[in-house]
């Protein structure tokens, strides 16, 4: 599904943010990208989502070489992803329904079909009753769930989340994680960057640990394992 081969990324005027990274993610996997802030997590995700191009090496997404893709083809590649950002990037001038329908408009889906899909997505994140509410009136956790609804409404095969729980307290974090697990269980590939322990909550999930731009083998700590139980409880609640 996603393959990195000796990828190096350097921004103009800075050191190498990613150094010689190689890995691959299979369809249906749930992969964490961990590391301290500045370790290159966001850059790694941007390379997958084709908002950045590698300085050297190849990035393959669904057998397409991202670095050789024409600029006009990139929007169509991005539609395969659901993107979730730490700062939500919601549009505060319109209500929840209008926020979630945006990707469908871009995909050319409209009318009843679009409305049905928007409500289904809002239902999955537990915000169906708030479709008319403005995002600013929602709590931090609800805003992030709304951002997830927007990311999944066009039924992408890959979800890419950059620290989706970074600004949230523990109970909201468990909610959000449960939603991601639920999507993963129906076959969606999830790639999530996180710097907190809760992210690496299970030994079943692969962890790509970045340290100063390099991939290093990681071992989950006890704290992570105890967080696992907590998360799994909330999965049951949502499933």
């Amino acid at each position: 599904m996603i393959q990195f081969d000796q990828v190096t990324k350097r921004y103009p005027g800075s050191d190498e943010v990613l150094k010689n990274i190689s890995f691959s993610v299979n369809a249906g996997e749930f992969v964490f990208v961990t590391g301290h802030s500045g370790a290159g997590k966001s850059t790694l995700l941007k390379l997958i989502a084709a908002t950045e191009r590698p300085t050297s090496g190849t990035v393959l997404v669904a057998n397409q070489n991202v670095s050789q893709l024409k600029a006009s083809a990139i929007p169509f590649l991005r539609r395969r992803f659901g993107l979730i950002f730490q700062d939500h990037k919601l549009l505060y001038d319109r209500n929840c329904f209008e926020n979630v329908i945006l990707p469908l408009r871009i995909n050319g889906v409209s009318g009843n079909e679009a409305a049905k899909r928007v409500r289904a997505a809002l239902d999955k994140v537990g915000l169906l009753h708030k479709e008319k509410a403005m995002p600013i009136t929602l709590s931090g956790g609800e805003q992030q769930r709304l951002a997830i609804a927007r990311a999944v409404v066009s039924r992408p095969s890959i979800l890419i989340a950059d620290e989706p729980t970074g600004n949230l307290d523990a109970s909201y974090t468990a909610d959000i994680m449960a939603i991601f697990y639920a999507f993963n269980q129906v076959g969606v590939t999830v790639i999530m960057a996180t710097h907190d322990a809760l992210g690496m909550s299970t030994t079943q999930n692969r962890v790509l640990h970045l340290n100063q731009g390099k991939l290093v083998p990681s071992t989950p700590s006890h704290a992570d394992l105890s967080a696992l139980n907590q998360t799994e409880l909330s999965i049951e609640k949502f499933a």
Partner: peptide, 14 residues
């Protein structure tokens, strides 16, 4: 500006 930026990120063409 926000709308344009978000639209780009989720796959809107120019």
């Amino acid at each position: 500006k926000d709308e344009i930026e978000v639209s780009y990120l989720i796959g809107a063409t120019s």
